[in-house]
């Protein structure tokens, strides 16, 4: 099964708390997941100041500056992993260093019915 682990965190706190992970630690964890063969993709994201939201209405493309919703915690990165079941996915998610300061939402990937 594929699971998407969405890493959310208050951007202002992500790098400023004593327990905030450094890039080296994040990279080391990503490498370990990669080596276990369960990694499909993973990236860290630029802050929401850089976000653009796209909608198409009546054939017209509408753009908004900023994320699609104002929330307390913002999407900071993601892991797309291959796991046997939810327990294994949770274990992978719990290892993501940013989980110490933010939260990780684990979502199973849906197969499109085509």
């Amino acid at each position: 099964m594929k699971y998407l682990c969405l890493v959310y965190s208050d951007e202002k706190l992500l790098h400023s708390l004593p327990e905030s992970p450094k890039d080296e630690e994040c990279f080391a964890y990503a490498t370990s997941v990669q080596n276990s063969g369960r990694m499909l993709a993973a990236e860290a994201l630029q802050p929401i100041d850089t976000a653009t939201t796209v909608r198409v209405r009546a054939g017209k493309t509408l753009l908004t500056d900023g994320p699609f919703a104002e929330t307390k915690e913002q999407l900071a990165g993601f892991y797309l992993v291959e796991a046997k079941d939810l327990n294994e996915a949770i274990q992978l998610a719990a290892g993501i260093p940013a989980a110490r300061v933010g939260s990780v939402e684990v979502r199973p990937v849906r197969q499109l019915e085509v």
């Binding site: 099964m1 079941d85 939810l86 327990n87 849906r110």
Partner: peptide, 14 residues
């Protein structure tokens, strides 16, 4: 079913 919560007795550490 959809998130694949397994039918298993947890491992000793869990």
């Amino acid at each position: 079913r959809d998130a694949a919560i397994p039918y298993e007795i947890p491992t000793p550490e869990q």
